[in-house]
Write a protein that binds this DNA or RNA. Structure first.
Lengths: 105, 105
DNA sequence: CCAATGTGCAACTCTGAGGTTGCACACAAT
DNA sequence: ATTGTGTGCAACCTCAGAGTTGCACATTGG
């Protein structure tokens, strides 16, 4: 109910983070520096956003020498989509029940 | 890509708004004043949240005399769930394609 | 070795969202 | 008519988050 799957929604609420996800989905493994070049923000801003996305499970981090490569992880997004669909279904059930009770009276 | 269905994600990102949605899903049609009594925030705060939820299409407004009744609308939630699932699928496709290209080289 | 490039950490600014209070207006009820 | 309850509007406050800058620390390449 109150709980939302691991901060995914909050992570997706920011437009810059959504742009980052798009870029990563298009290019595969990329570094924060590369991503920053494609956006009108600094590298540090990108790093912070990537930390949020990582904490939400939406991206994976992997070191390769001195650089850190990031890539999207569809799993967390899929799980959240299922959670959301389930919630919508529950709302439907509850509304139907309330309507039924109203008509019985 | 960048676009998110009508501000639904942003609306869901706030815990107070999620609580409001839960309450409405449980009780059916309720007023802002009633909702405020169940939460540790003022009525005005609730009204602002309901305005956001309304703009996102997550709730419906209906006047009944001097009071305004709100109720959840599962449709917008469902649409966003489908959008999100589709996005996850696209990520999967792109990642598979990138992986395939890497193996061909 | 030295220069170049990518990362990590910390302090700082600043805007906007969430929240509050106060008051005026509308409708109900007795 | 007047008291009570619900709503609407506006000004205000506060703080987390998005962004910046500056510098120190790794790692790679000539």
């Amino acid at each position: 109910m109150i709980d939302e799957p691991g901060g995914v929604i909050v992570a997706l609420a920011d437009p810059t983070r959504r742009q980052l996800l798009d870029l990563m989905a298009a290019r595969g493994e990329v570094t924060a520096t590369t991503l920053a070049e494609a956006l009108p923000v600094s590298r540090q801003a990108v790093v912070k956003h990537l930390a949020v996305l990582d904490a939400a499970g939406l991206v994976s981090r992997s070191r390769a020498g001195r650089e850190v490569r990031y890539a999207v992880r569809p799993e967390a997004l899929n799980a959240t989509a299922r959670w959301m669909a389930g919630l919508a279904t529950e709302w439907d059930r509850r509304l139907a029940r309330i309507k039924r009770l109203a008509e019985e009276a």
